[in-house]
């Protein structure tokens, strides 16, 4: 079945596109380093989100053209960014006051594992090496809505949506929605609640690659995403 999943599953761009559709007009948004940064590219027409980066910029825009970088103007991933009209600079304590103080509407992060109680593991594989946490532990307890975008399973085919995280936690009970390569799943009351799934996969097959029990509390919509 895993070969089959590889054919039907959404690309990273498509997962990012789906997550972007839920960002309301006027939202203040923090996107995690790497894959989540892609969400900014898919802002729906007519909606304006203001992007926050932990290192002290609000209202930044896309990367500049190669050669136009100013390395004093970067995001949390140390990548060059541009400014939009109405942007602001601030120091780190103010930046994390925005985070912990509940001023951000949405944070979208990557994950190693998400548990059915909303626990998130995304900072350490627990296998030694050099630990590095950055702002992830602050973000998961700050934003009003903490969403995860991820492949539904690991490269080896193991579930990333699990009953209980086995990897070191980033935060406890913090994730509210997961956008995967196969489905959109909410975390509610200590359970996974399936909201959308690719029409090509049956509920039973989706459950088979999900570590925790998938619940429904109404009709499950088709996860519909454009070719990107």
């Amino acid at each position: 079945m895993s070969a089959n999943l590889d054919i039907i599953k959404l690309s990273n761009a498509q997962i990012a596109w789906r997550a972007a559709q839920d960002i309301e007009d006027g939202a203040y948004v923090n996107l995690g380093i790497g894959f989540p940064e892609m969400v900014a590219k898919f802002q729906p027409e007519g909606r304006e989100a203001v992007f926050h980066t932990e290192n002290g910029v609000l209202g930044f825009g896309p990367a500049p053209a190669p050669g136009d970088e100013d390395w004093d103007l970067i995001n949390a991933g140390k990548k060059a960014i541009t400014l939009k009209p109405g942007s602001a600079f601030f120091h780190h304590a103010d930046s994390f006051a925005m985070v912990r103080g509940g001023h951000l509407d949405v944070a979208i992060l990557g994950a190693y594992q998400v548990a059915q109680n909303g626990d998130l593991a995304n900072w350490s594989t627990g296998k030694g090496g050099v630990p590095a946490v950055g702002g992830a532990m602050d973000l998961v307890h700050g934003a009003k809505r903490v969403a995860v975008i991820t492949d539904h399973v690991t490269k080896k085919g193991d579930p990333k949506l699990v009953q209980a995280c086995t990897m070191p936690l980033t935060g406890v009970g913090c994730v509210t929605r997961v956008y995967t390569s196969l489905a959109v799943v909410d975390v509610e009351g200590g359970h996974f609640v399936l909201r959308e799934k690719l029409p090509q996969i049956s509920f039973a097959d989706l459950q088979a690659v999900t570590g925790g029990e998938l619940n429904t509390d109404g009709p499950v919509a088709d996860l519909a995403v454009p070719e990107l």
């Binding site: 304590a93 912990r100 626990d119 532990m137």
Partner: peptide, 29 residues
Amino acid sequence: IVPQGTLAERIRAGGAGIPAFYTPTGYGT
């Protein structure tokens, strides 16, 4: 290793004469 926002707030607290504070960051980790 210190979470980034905790690092910032620990420094802010140091400069503001606040010897300790409570943060949700890192709870349960």
